[in-house]
Design a protein around this nucleic acid. Structure first.
Lengths: 338, 338
DNA sequence: GTGAAAGCGCTAACAG
DNA sequence: CTGTTAGCGCTTTCAC
């Protein structure tokens, strides 16, 4: 049933061979294959069929070297693909660039700035056309070096700082306001925001948005802010500590999808002698509908697409960040309790 | 606060310039930078520091062209990164190859064989060192063409068919047996397996494993098999249909993580006038612990790592598939009902 | 241990 | 419209 094929290594077909087979000069073959003008349709056909029969594929390295062009390649630098937020971003990006004939290279920083810089330079060495970066750095002036090499930069989710480049971000301020408003309307006053690294632009904007609504109504909310939770384990610890206090919060806001997981894990193990607190997530999760979770949804897939569009379109004038809206999705009644 | 840096494009530094700056010949500079022997430590130092001060970075395209070597690059071809299974696979792969100085290119087939072939050839044109493929094809004899080009192939999750190449797969047969045994022990007889595409090796193995246990005990289970559910929507439809039958199943087995989502979505909307059926997933999900879901866990991250190890180690003799164990994780009591 | 020349496969100028 | 001549930046002979 399964006939196994084996083949011996063979030298690759070169353009010269195609040209000879088609009876034209090297350059003519190059033109025909490259889709350049000034070639008779008939000649082009001859070259094309010669290429097909010979199984010719252009040598990218040679082509790039001779032309000085950049590769049809873009790089994506994120924290870690196991975070569905980044995975969705990657897929959005790929969905846009693939039809444009551009390939995707990915690299993970694990939120380490040094690692990021190393990865970004390695990517640059591949002569990528552009880079989409979810940066772990708070200052991007070093990136100017890459722009000087002709590489287009798009900062995603976290805006560019100290370098003149394009950014695609979420409306975190609006999201923060929406979260706070929602919880206030459901009667909550003791609200705890468990957030990501405090140096993150996204973190600060979300807190600020919530503050705009909560500071006048329930100023004590700031005492319940906890940060540094980029993973679920840290979030879990924060919640366990809060839950064991005299006056635990009646509602938790998860600063990101990992935190959401951590909060829910923690709450599922804590004492049952009080009403289950409400939980509101930032970033939607695939299991949100099943668990009836309310969230302020961001749209990483869309952000990926936007980044991809910028990258294939080439250098843009836009320096004002592109802001992707967030939306509050109320599901079930989890947040109605007090 | 944020001083913006701007730089004008500049020509890249070449090896010749480094050589001149260091007062050595082109070749010596090449040797020093390339870590080749036969260079005085002193000379090497001079070249290295010249390279640093000039900001030299080797031109990969030129280097590859001249040497004829392959790029320090591997490709990963999966269905779609938004599936956490593939995302974990990608991350496992990257975690292994990055320390080895190899970069990762990703591409999505969307389970279309034609698309796959196109992507795989484009990747090959980048002169990747190797390719890890979760293939949407049921015959891989065409892949011999890539091997002939010197590209190493690793088939992941779904074994190579019709070509002599390495495979890394899950113990689906054992997983199927474990799932069936578990449910039998909890008193279930009307068990429905809602599976992926029926042409998938993983699907067939899982069914076969279950059959080994269930056929003798509850032969009618096969009537409740449903397939073609690679996404949650299809799974949802299957469940809604089964639930509206006279004798709905007392337990569902989800053939993959998308199906699991679909089953749970469907069950959350169906009539409540009967005990909630048990649900057992294939593939673990991040929200498993929170929802107290029992699963037969596969280990895509580990599979990614194994694939990466093969790829960086270079051509291996192994043609026998590497089988990664699955493990039944019993959580909560969902499957105890009848 | 180091250097000079040749050429990887292709494309950019120009010339015809 | 087509062909010739140079190189892209690097690595490989093979001398010295």
């Amino acid at each position: 049933m399964s006939e196994t094929t084996t083949v011996t290594p063979q030298r690759r077909v070169t353009l010269a061979q195609v040209a000879e087979h088609a009876g034209v000069s090297l350059k003519t073959a190059s033109r025909a294959l490259g889709g350049e003008p000034h070639v008779t349709d008939q000649t082009r056909q001859r070259v094309l069929s010669a290429a097909t029969t010979l199984g010719y594929r252009r040598n990218t390295a040679a082509s790039l070297l001779a032309s000085g062009r950049v590769a049809e390649l873009v790089g994506l630098v994120t924290g870690d693909l196991t975070n569905p937020f980044y995975a969705a971003l990657a897929q959005g990006l790929e969905d846009v660039i693939d039809p444009a004939g551009v390939q995707l290279n990915v690299a993970s920083t694990r939120e380490d700035p040094e690692q990021e810089w190393r990865l970004v330079r390695d990517l640059a060495d591949l002569r990528v056309r552009g880079l989409a970066i979810v940066s772990a750095m708070d200052d991007h002036s070093r990136y100017a070096e890459l722009q000087a090499r002709g590489i287009e930069l798009i900062f995603v989710d976290r805006p560019a700082q100290g370098v003149s480049a394009c950014s695609v971000i979420s409306d975190n301020l609006g999201g923060g306001r929406a979260a706070a408003t929602h919880l206030l309307q459901h009667g909550h006053r003791r609200i705890s925001f468990v957030g990501d690294y405090s140096w993150l632009h996204t973190y600060r904007q979300r807190v600020d948005g919530m503050g705009q609504v909560l500071d006048p109504e329930a100023p004590q909310w700031r005492e319940l802010i906890r940060d540094g939770a980029h993973d679920s384990a840290t979030a879990r610890r924060h919640v366990l500590e809060l839950e064991s206090s005299d006056q635990p919060p009646t509602a938790y806001v998860a600063g990101n999808n990992r935190v959401l997981l951590g909060i829910l894990e923690a709450l599922s193990t804590t004492r049952e002698d009080r009403p289950m607190p409400a939980v509101l997530g930032f970033d939607d999760v695939e299991w949100g509908p099943v668990m009836q979770l309310s969230v302020v949804a961001t749209d990483p897939y869309r952000m990926g697409r936007l980044a991809g569009e910028q990258l294939v379109a080439g250098p843009s004038a836009t320096e004002e960040p592109l802001v992707v809206p967030t939306s509050l999705i109320a599901r079930g009644s989890g947040e109605r309790q007090s």
